[in-house]
Simulated assay, not measured.
Amino acid sequence: MYKVDLPVDESALRAVERRRAAEAERKNRIFNSRSRVIGVDLRALHKQREEKQERLEMDKQRDMAHDLLRLSLDEMAMQQKKGEEELRRELAQDLVQYRAIHQRAEDSRDADVNYGRQAAPGASISVSGSALGPASMQVFLGEGMNENEKKKAQMEMNERNLRAQKEEREKQGREQKNRDLRAVQLKALEEKCKRAAHIALSQYNQAQAEERMEREQQERLRREGEELAEVRYMVTSDLLTERPEAAKRKTKSSAEGPRVLTDRWKGMTPQQISEIHRKREEQCLEKERLREMERQRDVAWDYHLTEQARQQEREKNRDKELNRERRIQLDKYNQQLAREHQAHQHYLDKQLYTNRPTVHYFTQFNTSSR
């Protein structure tokens, strides 16, 4: 036979490699405790990654929008600033033009002083003094127009004011006198009224005092009469007498006997006292009898308790004896079980389990995924 180089089957090799790769992947998946026990949610991870990308994209778009808005606001601010500067420049030009037209230095009041001009001789002021202000410096004190007429009018006005003040003072004096006279009359009338009221009050108080004295006298007479009647009643009544019958009142029922009146009771009779002593002796005897019965009952109850305690003690001793015997039997049974267990353990160690596994025995497990 001649050696012939046969072509290698590539499909078989690929199948073997594919199975080897699948086996390796399966081993990694099975022997990886994290993947096997906890696991990984790929779908959730992909979703989180997509959400993060969307969030980053939204942040990027928002930043771009903010940049555009900032640029537009800056441009608007620059335009507004430029407009304000233009308006300020126009206002300054208008002010300069107004001053050049309406506020020239040649038209001022002190232009003749500044520019060496003189007023025409004999010029007079045609404006009235009231129309000129204090800063005009055209009319001074004592140099105004119609000064004499003004002084004369001022003197006449002063005279009229003095006459009016004098008349006013005279009028006030007359009114003051009238008021004083009226006050004196009112005071006299008030004193008269006070005297009349005082007299009336004195008469009323006197009448009240007389009436009170009359009432007190009548009350005293009535009280004295009542006291005398009470003394007479006490002397003549059964309250101060020594009759026992006065303290008894007959009732409608004869079975009840006479009723004792506590406010007139004078004491008990010898028969009543002897009856009370007899009742007391009977009560003492009855109490002694009851005390003897109570003592006998206590003795019987103590004897019963003693017998019951003895019975309980006997029961307790019997229970102790039974427990001791039960414990002895239990100890014997436990010893028997211990001997049997020891014999069984000796059988397992010396006869049954004599072939111990080596390390090679444990390493043959978990070597394949199948």
Results as ranks from 00 to 15, higher is better:
R26E: 15
R26G: 12
N28M: 08
R29F: 14
R29V: 06
I30N: 05
F31C: 02
F31Q: 04
S33K: 08
S33T: 11
R34Q: 08
R34L: 12
R36L: 09
I38E: 03
V40M: 00
D41W: 07
A44P: 06
R49I: 06
E50D: 14
E51V: 01
K52L: 14
R55L: 06
L56R: 09
K60C: 03
K60S: 13
K60A: 13
Q61W: 10
Q61H: 09
R62D: 11
D63T: 06
M64V: 10
A65D: 12
D67H: 14
L68I: 08
L68Y: 12
R70E: 05
S72T: 02
D74F: 03
M76L: 15
M78A: 15
Q79R: 15
Q79I: 14
E84L: 15
E86P: 02
L87P: 00
R88L: 14
R89C: 11
E90M: 07
A92C: 02
A92V: 05
A92S: 13
L95F: 01
V96A: 08
V96E: 13
V96Y: 09
Y98N: 03
R99C: 07
A100Q: 03
H102Y: 15
Q103Y: 07
Q103T: 02
R104I: 00
D107E: 03
D107K: 00
R109P: 06
D110P: 02
A111L: 00
D112L: 05
Y115W: 11
Y115T: 00
G116T: 04
A120K: 07
G122R: 03
S124M: 11
S124P: 01
S126L: 15
V127I: 12
G133W: 06
A135F: 15
Q138A: 08
Q138N: 07
V139N: 09
